[in-house]
């Protein structure tokens, strides 16, 4: 029985009212998340192109849901349970021991995507079933860079586990390397990245942990009521406007990332969603490094990072 059959069987046994899983798009090999009813189980697919994190979708569904989750997805689900956004008893998690996912944009460089019928991982190669024939690409060349630093390829929370558990490793070598650059080099690097940002806020919108209804960087509408006077409205606090320039974008990204300290699950959705390909995960991973090395916090702890009242330094 192959992986996909196992997933379908597990989903069928779940008695859930809804299923959140990947479905293949028609025009390209991309897989998108869909909410399905139990009798649509046969539509689902799973491959190294199942990129997205379903945790955010779960938050808008009531009732019992079955979900297909990779390692990082399960991390996000666990974090949301920890923060009271999801209920464990409402979830049936089909965990998949993940070998890493493909970076869709890298893949597009190797092959004309409209010709790809199917994608599967075979050993160290990614096998693309094309309309005419087959093509093998070394998986390391198309793998999402984020997966190389994955600490949790095996789900941390699941009802059914598919595949052999795998060991993850924590690796901050690239961050350390970047830290060795001079201050000016670092600033120039980040400014050159951030000036590209168009502030579409996709990084914020796709992040499973960015669930606030009103974001810090939005023009604040805290308590606008019919009685608010124009003066009152004009004087509401505003952290950032909508202006787009390298400096404002820097502030936006620093703020966004700060809210993920000790929470970021490392799914890489922010980078995947970014149309301008900013290296956002680098900031998140830097913060993870601080949290781990300076505060000695472990993401597996039951207490959220900010609730811990230890003080470090003087």
């Amino acid at each position: 029985m192959n992986e996909i059959e196992k997933i379908k069987d597990a989903l069928k046994s779940s008695n859930a009212e809804k299923i959140v899983a990947f479905v293949r798009k028609e025009s390209e090999p991309r897989e998108v998340l869909k909410v399905l009813s139990p009798n649509e189980v046969d539509k689902i697919s799973f491959s190294p192109l199942s990129l997205n994190n379903p945790a955010k979708l779960l938050m808008q569904i009531n009732g019992k849901v079955a979900v297909v989750a990779k390692g990082c997805d399960s991390m996000a689900i666990r974090q949301l349970i920890k923060e009271g956004k999801l209920k464990r008893e409402n979830l049936f998690i089909v965990g998949i021991s993940c070998k890493g996912v493909v970076d869709y944009r890298k893949l597009a460089k190797f092959v004309n995507l409209s010709e790809v019928n199917d994608v599967e991982l075979n050993g160290n190669d990614l096998v693309l079933k094309l309309k005419n024939g087959e093509k093998r690409i070394p998986f390391l060349e198309v793998v999402d860079e984020n997966c190389l630093y994955c600490g949790h390829p095996t789900p941390v929370i699941y009802d059914v586990l598919i595949g052999e558990p795998r060991e993850g490793k924590r690796d901050f070598s690239d961050i350390e390397q970047f830290e060795r650059l001079s201050r000016e080099e670092r600033w120039n690097y980040w400014i050159s990245q951030f000036e590209r940002c168009i502030r579409c806020h996709a990084c914020r919108s796709v992040c499973p942990l960015c669930y606030c209804e009103e974001c810090m960087v939005d023009p604040s509408n805290l308590a606008v009521s019919p009685m608010s006077t124009p003066e009152e409205k004009a004087s509401y606090p505003r952290i950032l406007g909508k202006t787009v320039n390298a400096r404002d974008n820097t502030i936006y990204h620093l703020l966004r990332v700060l809210h993920h300290a000790g929470r970021c699950v490392g799914c890489g959705e922010c980078e995947r969603a970014c149309p301008m390909e900013l290296p956002l995960r680098m900031l998140e991973r830097k913060l993870e490094k601080v949290v781990v090395e300076i505060f000695g916090y472990d993401l597996n702890e039951d207490i959220p990072f900010f609730s811990k009242l230890d003080i470090v330094g003087d």
Binding site: V35, I198, S205, V206, A273, P275
Partner: peptide, 21 residues
């Protein structure tokens, strides 16, 4: 729209979207 994230990618990249603030 079930999976829509309410981000601005589609409108900011769109060549004909003209809304402003």
């Amino acid at each position: 729209a079930i999976n829509c994230k309410s981000c601005g990618v589609c409108t900011y990249l769109c060549p004909t979207c003209f809304c402003f603030d």
